[in-house]
């Protein structure tokens, strides 16, 4: 069994698409670090001077138009705005952006890296299986190892290890790089433990996406089919957003949507969202807003079940299906 897993890992790492995908993910994650660097950097003297100058200019202009400002403020308050939000007097912090804290920027960097790595792993796994059916080599392989459970397990383990390694390197690298950039600009590292846990969950998500893709490609016997499911879901998401407005009761399916569970699993506090239920009454239409939260644990179970079900169905089909 070990030799079988090693052979599958050998094939996975030797595939051109694997190399291209890994490079693309590294590049995307690397480019995002430029944004992280910019966010954690304190404003330069030139930026400070330029911000000050613009602030003074806008303040002068504001003070010259008192009547107009008061009118705008009143309109804002009438529309339900709060006092602070309706105060349009320029403030210096609007013009000179302070350096962002590591604890604030790292979750965004992790979310981006998880999405990119997850998509990369999805593509890598789908193609890993799809290529076997496209080339017909799965039939050849089975004439060497006819025990299908062994073949299935070896391939799944290879996908798990490959995507796990990719996720660990990219997400670990993202977190380490963000920490390094932050400290190099004098920032403090806080929430390190929570962020490390979030990165670890991100690795889990990358592995889950890869295994789900592996299962889908095995069921459909084609790379394009697995990618089609992903694109189909993206399309469905747009349709659902439109439908939620028309059929508010449909919002009940939200806890089962993968993208919400993805965010819930990554964020320390899960993911909160608000469902809106319009009610037509005699006095007009009122909107009842109900807040929901998908906890980290719920999202974890969701991904575990989704992965297990996909793999289970794929295994049953692979074991029983004729290879022609």
């Amino acid at each position: 069994m070990i030799s079988l897993v090693l052979a599958e890992l050998n094939r996975l790492r030797s595939r051109r698409l694997t190399v291209i995908t890994v490079l693309a993910v590294v590049l995307a994650a690397g480019l995002f670090q430029l944004a992280v660097n910019s966010a954690v950097s304190p404003p330069s003297a030139a930026e400070l001077a330029a911000g000050q100058e613009q602030y003074q200019r806008d303040l002068r202009e504001y003070e010259q138009n008192t009547e107009e400002n008061e009118q705008m403020r009143q309109e804002c308050l009438d529309q339900g705005g709060d006092v602070d939000g309706c105060d349009f007097k320029p403030r210096l912090e609007w013009y000179v952006t302070p350096a962002e804290a590591f604890a604030d920027i790292a979750p965004t960097a992790l979310m981006f890296a998880t999405m990119m790595t997850g998509l990369g792993a999805f593509l890598m796994a789908a193609s890993f299986i799809g290529a076997e059916y496209t080339s017909g080599s799965i039939a050849n392989w089975l004439t060497f190892i006819p025990q299908r459970w062994k073949v299935f397990t070896a391939k799944a383990v290879a996908v798990l290890l490959g995507s796990g390694l990719l996720g660990t390197v990219i997400l670990g690298g993202t977190l380490a790089s963000a920490a390094l950039l932050s400290t190099s600009h004098g920032g403090e590292i806080t929430s390190g433990q929570a962020l490390t846990a979030s990165a670890a969950r991100g690795v889990g998500l990358v592995v889950a996406m890869a295994l789900i893709s592996f299962g889908l490609a095995l069921i459909a016997r084609h790379t394009a089919a697995a990618i089609g499911v992903l694109l189909g879901y993206a399309l469905l998401n747009i349709v659902l957003l439109l439908l939620f407005g028309v059929l508010p009761s449909l919002q009940r399916i939200r806890p089962f949507l993968p993208d919400l569970n993805l965010q819930a699993f990554l964020n320390k506090g899960g993911y909160s969202y608000t469902d809106s239920y319009p009610k037509v009454e005699s006095g007009g239409t009122t909107v009842e807003q109900v807040q929901h939260t998908i906890t980290v644990a719920e999202a974890g179970i969701y991904w575990l079940v989704l992965t297990a079900v996909t793999l289970g169905v794929a295994f049953i089909i692979f074991r029983r299906r004729d290879v022609v």
Binding site: L4, L6, A7, S14, A131, N140, T143, I145
Partner: peptide, 25 residues
């Protein structure tokens, strides 16, 4: 056994294809 046409991974070399099979078994 060879069933119908030879079926290997087209982007791998002949040696690599056989090496994978050899490693697998």
């Amino acid at each position: 056994a060879i069933v119908e046409q030879p079926k290997f991974f087209p982007s791998f070399s002949g040696r690599k294809n056989l090496a994978l099979l050899a490693q697998g078994i």
